[in-house]
Design a protein around this nucleic acid. Structure first.
Lengths: 215, 215
DNA sequence: GCGTATATCTACTTGCAGGTAAGGCTACGG
DNA sequence: CCGTAGCCTTACCTGCAAGTAGATATACGC
């Protein structure tokens, strides 16, 4: 229907069609949510007929899984590619955050699918996500531990690094989510806010300046 | 089906039935997600027949909206009730966080519905959530601003309080979400982790110790 | 007791969306 | 040329779950 005037491009190689379908699927899933997205609409947006999707990508679940997989791979690649492991830990965290928020800013639909949709579906979709998050937490944790040990480690601080890493990763996800609804803030600023909170808060922990009720 | 032996209790007042139905709905929505939850299952769990739900709570959307509304009101009440506005700002934040995580710990199903389901549905459901989050951010922001001004405010810090408040609220939500999958950690500890990150990080900001690349 | 309002059920209709059958068209190797 | 492989479509089937019609049963006021 949407493809009435600009005449349907015909007989493209499978590879290209698959990309078009995935693009359309990500867009529609992100706008409507998994269940409210219909295969008919996806096929329409992609500019192909429905059986093509089933022929190339399988069932609706399969299609969604393919979206999650592609987007999460892209995200991971973007972040990993933006970080130089030879730099100091804080710079690595900074570069990672910047790459992350840049990616989210450019691929809002992709991020929505990953974060809001995949997580709210139970089951095997979110496994991919859980794995990705685990890797992210691991990366951050490594940075924190390296920093803590470099400064003469305090056992209280090191035992908390993993939870802290999880909090930072969670905060990043959540901030990205928040940012979806405040697009006027530049990526750089969002990253800086989190960096301040995370690195300064962590720095205090390393130095033993913890907060506690009554003290 | 689930109510075969313990004989169905008959002719209860509407008020009671509505509560039972909402309880069942929250449970089923949280387990299955909005779309995979069927009205038949909800009616079954509630111990009434399907038309009762339509008679009392309206359509499936209406029912879900009612769940979101009730749960978000409960959450807000729990948090507000746990905070004494005459205490110092840090203690207020601490008490609020504790109340929040306690609530989430006790009402996992309710939180799942609020956070994972309501947010992934677009549309009017999430409005309630957005409003609630806005109020939460406002509360935190108030605390931060009060602290910043008390210590002789720095313009850089005050301009950032709202974003910081958003980050803290987001981090709290996200940590709660993370906690759903790590129930072995006690509520108190989760709250303490976040408190450390937030308050210490913020304290540094107030004192002008901001992080910046190359500095 | 009797009628009215309210609580409640069984059994049905219906529409949408996931999935498929069956075949047509075009390119390209031989 | 011509046939085979693979791109692509129209038109259909079907099941599930949202929503409803219409009847029944019980409490409670008078």
């Amino acid at each position: 229907m949407s493809v009435d005037e600009r005449r349907r491009v015909k007989r493209l190689p499978r590879e290209v069609r698959e990309r078009q379908i995935l693009d359309a699927a990500v867009q529609v899933f992100s706008e409507r949510g998994y269940h409210n997205a219909s295969m008919d609409e996806i096929s329409d947006v992609a500019g192909v007929s429905k059986p093509m999707i089933y022929a190339y990508l399988g069932s609706k679940e399969d299609l969604f899984a393919a979206c999650v997989q592609r987007e999460s791979a892209n995200l991971l690649e973007a972040v990993a590619g933006g970080v130089d492991v030879d730099l100091a830990p804080d710079m690595q965290l900074w570069d990672g955050l910047r790459a992350f928020f840049d990616y989210v800013g450019e691929q809002r639909a992709g991020w929505r699918v990953l974060h809001r949709q995949a997580i709210s579906q139970g089951g095997p979709y979110s496994d991919e996500l859980v794995a990705m998050r685990r890797r992210a937490i691991g990366l951050v944790d490594t940075l924190l531990v390296r920093t803590a040990t470099k400064q003469g480690l305090d056992e209280h601080a090191t035992s908390a690094t993993e939870a802290l890493a999880a909090a930072v990763v969670g905060a990043a996800e959540s901030l990205a989510d928040w940012w979806l609804d405040h697009p006027e803030v530049p990526s750089r600023i969002v990253a800086a806010r989190l960096m301040n909170l995370a690195w300064m808060g962590f720095g205090d922990l390393v130095e033993g300046n913890t907060w506690s009720p009554r003290g």
